[in-house]
Amino acid sequence: MRAFSYEKPADPAAAAARAAEVEGAKFLAGGTNLLDLMKLEIEIPLHVIDVNGLGLDEITETEDGGLRVGTLVTNTALSADSRIRRDYPLLTRAIAAGATGQLRNKATTGGNLLQRTRCPYFYDTNMPCNKRAPGSGCGALTEGAFSRQLGVIGTSDACIATHPSDMAVAMRALDAVVETVTPTGMTREIPLEEFHLLPGDTPEDETALMPGELITHVRLPAPVGGTQEYHKVRDRASYAFALVSVALVRQADGSGRVALGGVAPKPWRSDAADAELPNGASAVMSVLLDGARPTEENAFKITLAERTLAAMLKEA
């Protein structure tokens, strides 16, 4: 790990202002992903701004009947909150499907959204990676590369990494909105749909955040009801990233929402695919995964996604 200076700012706006002002600054919340990457020298901040203790660790009720989750609420606290368990069970299920008890006790809401991909070529600093070292190429797209875990849709010729979060997939299905404070002290709202960027030619640009901008809250709209399930398919029964995950909200009339994890650079959902829910899993996936460009190694994810949703619809 490279040397860095460290500070604890007084409030969120001051944190954002400092992050924009100090060269090489990086926010630190739970640290479970950032410290891992700093040890590998994939992240090399010169200055670390510790945002713990800024009072952003509460879940409050909003006027429209939803909930406002402070960015520092831990994954454990969010999944265990009685209002979340009762009204947003999809979110509890998704969070509990990820990581381990120790990690969830430290990992935060905002940090979870900002975690980096677990693509093996991003993690191996001997390998080319356009996300880690822009312009160096994509190791995952070379002859004989291991791409079994990687993305099948929304990817580009520069990058086929997936976003690793389970929590974000549930939040996408629930139409969550990210609230931020900018370096000039302004607040801003970004729908989760627009928060993560597709890689295109610039896979190093991962979110809609501007330099120094700090996530303060994630807002959940009023509960949508229905039956809510999160099904994660992975290589081990616990503590593994998704090959495919499906978030499903299903209403009594057969309508609902579907979001996918493990297949794309962001939680993957579309209104047009949701509209196909009464017609079954095959109809949904033919719309949702239309235009998919899998590799030979990960083409199975297309079939797996459809079969996972089919199994969930049969059980629901």
Binding site: S5, V22, G24, A25, L46, H47, T125, P128, R132, S136
Partner: peptide, 13 residues
């Protein structure tokens, strides 16, 4: 690997 995407300047404190 040329991994250092970030600046290699001095720390701020």
């Amino acid at each position: 690997g040329g991994a250092a995407a970030q600046s290699t300047g001095a720390t701020a404190g």
